[in-house]
Design a protein around this nucleic acid. Structure first.
Length: 572
DNA sequence: GCCGTTTTCGGCCCGACTGTTTTCAGTCG
């Protein structure tokens, strides 16, 4: 059983945590974290690269010493260094360090002075008043720790929430702030359109900074104020969402927006780029000595550093700098490039609206075509269609197509891929359809080998067009099923099949890394909403965001094409 | 521990805020 990248990064991360606790050189600690970032950004398995004698030491931040450690993990599943560290320092301290406000220093002091090596120990010590007596701690710090422990035990650790949820949650605050200050802009991972966000970073300008900050901290939904400074304040909303507000000068807005959009990794790389040119980069601008070269807009900031503008979705330090220097950045897909939706449901299965209602809504979005893809019979929970009902639906669509202007309804189905890789409906009805969407809803826990084979087998069916929600994951709820995604993508490309980015904000499956892998392989993807209601058709924007994070352009996506062109592509 | 057209040694991103100090360490992003 080959070692997953995550198993490698988990071990290296733990080494970093323990070295940190030990008080090791911070740059040595950082070296491990840098290596972790490199590996987790790979779309390939390190273990397989090792097997193929690929040179992993050429990867950034992976040096000779790191290669040895990785090889040891790949070969033995263990890392002696880590085992040794665990004997020196209880690894339960790592959990304490994950609490907000608790870093390696404080954790170490608590362990050394009070012998605290678990959260429950810490809780008791705080309650007994022992923590506040420690040098460098004090009453307020002790109270903060107490509250963090309480929140931690309620939430079971900090959890990122779906971006779509955060978007909804934050609207009232944004509206409120727009009344009180200018240029209110959400930055951070929200602006980078990450599928989940940890907190919300807001940027604004104001002529009266003091009152603007005050207004922010006094917002009705604020549960408590974490920090209240003249440039930055942080609050926790009643919903548990943390929001940071920074008020910056109008002339430095671009510098600040760039800085606070991140990612952290992108910002670090940006400052390194500056350093190489003897320029200093911070949230106030690009500087040569004391001379300010740029600050007002992000475009000017990048330009001063010799770079082409990089879209927020690409700012992860995953190759965008090289592409920017070489003027080789992709022109990313946009919402209005989409010409139709290729996965939707109607009342016939588990949708909420009739085909006609759904199609009318799609037409109002300006779509040229629209596929009706109700479930097949295996999905009985969703009242899936058998041959007879699907045949009736085909007739119904033919009739509707005769009446509806401006939009073509595609006859389709979301047919289940059964455990043995066969499809849930017979070929003679599938071949009557304009397009066939295939997906898995049962037997999700097969081994990687079996699950991969199941899908490869299904693609042998000449009616197979698109594999929908290819990994089955649901964000924060269900892990992706175990698959050899690269093999599936390569086979799909060879066979003339396609994969989907499911735009439902709970799924967003394929994810950004896999979407990018598809692009590298040359496999085109569809972006579809999986809408079960008229409102759901608006999920498309989330799918577009995911595609943009995967570096996809208009040309990489199936349903940016007119139907006559798409039809040719679907022909196998 | 990683890295290298000024370097194989000596750097390694940078600033804001809090709380505990009395000038700054710790944490965060």
């Amino acid at each position: 059983m080959p070692v997953h990248n995550k198993e490698i990064t988990d071990k290296l991360n733990e080494v970093a945590d323990l070295l940190d606790l030990k008080g090791e050189n911070e740059f040595r600690v950082r070296a491990y974290r840098n290596a972790v970032r490199t590996i987790s950004g790979l779309s390939k398995s390190v273990a397989e690269m090792e097997d193929n004698d690929e040179n992993i030491s050429s990867l950034p931040d992976i040096g000779d010493s790191m290669v040895e450690k990785i090889e040891e993990i790949v070969e033995t599943g263990n890392l002696k260094q880590l085992e040794k560290l665990k004997k020196e320092i209880p690894s339960s301290l790592v959990e304490i360090m994950k609490l907000e406000q608790m870093g390696p220093e404080r954790t170490k002091i608590l362990y050394e002075e009070l012998d605290i090596d678990s959260i429950s120990d810490l809780k008791k010590a705080v309650e007994d008043g022992k923590v506040e007596e420690l040098k460098g701690f004090g009453k307020k710090t002790a109270d903060n720790i107490k509250r963090e422990i309480k929140e931690y035990s309620q939430k079971g650790g900090s959890k990122r929430i779906k971006r779509s949820e955060a978007e909804e949650e934050i609207q009232p605050l944004i509206k409120y702030l727009e009344d009180k200050m200018d240029d209110v802009t959400i930055a951070g991972s929200f602006r980078r359109k990450k599928e989940t966000v940890g907190d919300i970073d807001i940027l604004a300008t104001s002529d009266d900074v003091e009152n603007a900050m005050k207004a922010f901290t006094e917002f009705d939904e604020v549960d408590r104020v974490l920090a209240h400074g003249e440039k930055k304040s942080s609050v926790k909303l009643r919903t548990g969402l943390q929001v940071d507000l920074r008020i910056v000068g109008k002339n430095e807005f671009g510098a600040a927006l760039l800085y606070f959009t991140g990612s952290k990794e992108h910002s670090v790389a940006l400052r390194k780029t500056g350093q190489e040119k003897d320029l200093k980069v911070n949230e106030y601008g690009v500087f040569s000595g004391k001379k300010k070269l740029a600050a007002k807009t992000e475009e000017k900031m990048y330009k001063a550093l010799g770079l082409h503008y990089i879209e927020p979705e690409l700012r992860e330090d995953k190759g965008e700098f090289e592409a920017s220097r070489n003027n080789n950045l992709p022109k990313l897909i946009e919402l209005n490039d989409i010409k139709g939706d290729l996965q939707t449901h109607s009342k016939a299965s588990d949708g909420k609206y009739t085909i006609k209602e759904m199609v009318e809504a799609a037409r109002d979005l300006g779509y040229e075509y629209y596929a009706v893809t109700d479930h097949s019979k295996k999905v009985s929970m969703a009242n899936g269609l058998d041959e007879k009902r699907l045949a009736e639906q085909i007739e119904q669509i033919d009739e509707l197509n005769g009446k509806m202007k401006k939009i073509k309804i595609l006859k389709s189905v979301e047919v289940d891929i059964l455990e043995d890789g066969s499809l849930d409906l017979p070929d003679d009805i599938l071949k009557e359809l304009d397009i066939v969407i295939c997906s898995i809803h049962y037997n999700m826990n097969l081994s990687k080998k079996k699950q991969t084979r199941r899908i490869l087998k299904a693609m042998e069916n000449p009616n197979f067009n698109i594999l929908a929600h290819p990994t089955g994951r649901r964000i924060n709820e269900r892990s992706p099923y175990d698959l050899d995604m690269e093999e599936i993508m390569k086979e799909a490309k060879d066979k003339g099949c396609f994969l989907e980015i499911n735009a439902n904000p709970d799924r967003l499956d394929l994810d950004d890394d896999n979407a990018r892998l598809a692009k590298e392989i040359g496999l085109k993807l569809s972006i579809s909403t999986d809408a079960h209601s008229v409102d759901n058709l608006n999920f498309m924007k989330y799918g577009i965001a995911q595609a943009r994070r995967g570096w996809l352009g208009k040309e990489d996506v199936l349903n940016t094409r007119a139907w006559k062109d798409l039809k040719k592509l679907l022909k196998r």
